[in-house]
Structures are given as C-alpha cells and as structure tokens.
C-alpha cells in the first residue's frame, strides 16, 4: 500500500454481504469489503459487472435487497442524510445542469451544500483553472473532457471526506486518462478517500487497493502487487514475425494452458513446469516460426483478471 501521512486505520466505507437484483438479474451478490481512510480504492471490471449498482447503494441512491453498508460511520439506510453531506459523487453519466453555465453549476452545488466556491477553492483550484476560460459557457456546450472536469469540481466543492467516482475515464483517450489520475493523486494527498470504478485494467495500478468485479461478485480484493504476486503459473511473453499464426499454433500446443494476445506479445502459461521455454521454442520452430522471442514476465492486472474470472461468465 502506498505511504500516506494519513493513518490507514479508520474504516471509511464498509459493505457487508450486499445483494441486489433487478427483476431476474442478480446485479450484486454477496459483496463485502472495507475502504480505509485516505485510500484510493478501485472497483475494476467490465460494463454490466455491477459497478454502478454498488456505487448507487453506497451513495444512498438505491436500496440493497440484503446486507449492510456503512459510509463514514453512518448506515446507508438509517443515516442517509448524514452521508450525503460527507460524500461527493460523480455519476458515470453526465448529470449536471446542461443549460446552466460552468460558473452557475458550481455555484449551485456550493449553495446546496451551504458553502461557497471561495471557501473550498483550494480543493478545486488545479482543475478549475483549466475550466476558467469557459466559465460563462453552458455546461451542455462543453467538450467531454471539460464536462468531466466540471463534474469533478462540483463533486468536490463541499469538501467531501469521501469521493465516489463512477467510471470517470470511460471513453476518454489515454492522455486525458493519465491527467485525470494525476488529479486523483493530488486529491488523495489532501486526505480525501476515493472510491473509483473503471473498465480499464491498467488504471488498477494507480490504486492502493482494488476489487476485481465480474458478474456481480468481487472475485478478489487486494493491493495490485499482491494480486500479481498471487498469479499461480509462470507467465511468458511470446512474439514472432507472424503474430496471428503464432496465436493459432500456440493454442494448438497441448502443453499450453492459456494464450491471450497482449499487444505486441502473446501471454502464455503451461499446464506444468516440466514444459520449459526451450521446449516451446522447439515446438514453435517445428511449426515454422523462427525469430521467436520468449521471455518470462510479471503478470499485469489484466492477466490476473482473466485468470480469476470464469470464462463462461464473461459479461
């Protein structure tokens, strides 16, 4: 876990055996977890895994069928009004007033929470300076990246202790995604606890701890490093001249347990350790692949996710 000046011994968010159904669809089943003060906690999984349902329960906007959740020491059902004062929520869908200007939206949210922009300006300054040239533009006319920044400002203006960000980077290009995560790092440094969901597995690395979610269940909760350490099989990156033919030939090898394309290499595991990379090299040469590159690598979170999620369960 990343070092922080904040003591990570106070539980800020807690879920206990949460279940939720929509009609016949079990959106969440048996979700339990804890988020400590000052953490960036990532909920990582594909569309339809249940991320938004969980966020709506934690932000007191939806009732669970079963189970309990506490946010900042308050129960999400009994004490929902206390929670709402303490949290900031940025929904996945842009939910600000489209026909109010940037400035008006921000004023509105500040007023609703009995505060002013001036009072908490230090929290939003870094983000707001980028918005300032457009402050009299209506929110509906902003570009996607600017809308995202405004939504974050509005979620921060009442100085929340906990920030819930539901897929803030979906559909955003890699450069803007990186900038967004830099902003989250600064907010964390101010002591704000952040719960953030994303379908991008590479963003897991920026979190202190993550929960991998699929089909409504948490399949693992831990630090990214521990999850990678827990990857059972040795993992190899394999590349050659003809990558598609290589993929098919790797799949045809009966000693190969799994093989997935990963950008410029295929990631491969074997059924047992008696089969080595030298054996694989021989096999590939017998299939006409020369110029092979086989190297043992550390798994990424995406490798771990695919390894942990059951194949038939894919959303």
């Amino acid at each position: 876990m990343a070092e922080s000046k904040y003591q990570m011994n106070r539980i800020m968010v807690q879920g206990h055996n949460i279940f939720r159904k929509y009609g016949k669809v079990q959106a969440l089943s048996d979700i339990s977890f804890e988020v400590m003060e000052g953490e960036i906690f990532g909920v990582i999984g594909p569309d339809g895994a249940g991320k938004t349902t969980l966020f709506r329960i934690l932000t007191t906007l939806l009732l669970a069928d079963q189970g309990q959740a506490m946010v900042n020491g308050f129960d999400v059902v009994e004490d929902y009004t206390s929670i709402r004062k303490k949290i900031g929520y940025m929904p996945g869908k842009f939910s600000l007033y489209q026909d109010l200007t940037v400035q008006e939206n921000l004023d509105f949210f500040a007023t609703v929470f009995n505060t002013t922009i001036e009072e908490n300006y230090h929290l939003i300054r870094d983000i707001y300076v980028q918005l300032e040239p457009f402050k009299s533009r209506r929110a509906g006319a902003l570009s996607g990246g600017m809308k995202q920044k405004l939504a974050l400002c509005c979620a921060l203006i009442h100085k929340p202790e906990i920030l819930f960000l539901d897929e803030p980077t979906t559909g955003v290009d890699p450069v803007s995604r990186r900038e967004f995560w830099e902003m989250l790092g600064k907010l964390k440094a101010q002591g704000i606890t952040i719960i953030v969901s994303t379908p991008y597995m590479d963003e897991a690395e920026k979190c202190d701890r993550i929960a991998l979610i699929q089909g409504g269940s948490f399949i693992q909760i831990d630090t990214p490093e521990n999850i990678k350490d827990g990857y059972a099989n040795p993992l190899y990156a394999v590349s050659s001249e003809s990558m598609y033919a290589l993929l098919k030939d790797l799949r045809s090898c009966e000693r190969v347990k799994s093989c997935y394309p990963f950008g410029d290499a295929h990631h491969v595991t074997f059924f047992d350790d008696s089969f080595t990379s030298e054996d694989l090299e021989k096999f590939l040469q017998s299939k006409g692949h020369n110029d092979n590159n086989i190297s043992k690598i550390r798994p990424t979170i995406e490798d771990c996710f695919m390894n942990l999620s059951s194949p038939g369960d894919a959303s």
Binding site: G45, P46, D47, A49, T170, G171, P199, M201, Q214, Y244, L247, Y260, P261, E302, F305, M306, S309, P311, A314, S315
Partner: peptide
C-alpha cells in the same frame, strides 16, 4: 468506431480474433 469500449478482457480478445479472421 471504438468497438471494444467497456468490454471485459477476454471478450475484447475474442473480438480481435474476429477482426483478424475478417482481415484474412
């Protein structure tokens, strides 16, 4: 146009195999 946004990692890869196949 961004055909794989939000899709889980295994399906994303199966999708690219469909693309390879079409290209072949």
């Amino acid at each position: 146009d961004e055909p794989t946004g939000g899709v889980d990692p295994s399906t994303r890869r199966q999708f690219w195999e469909l693309i390879y196949d079409a290209s072949q």
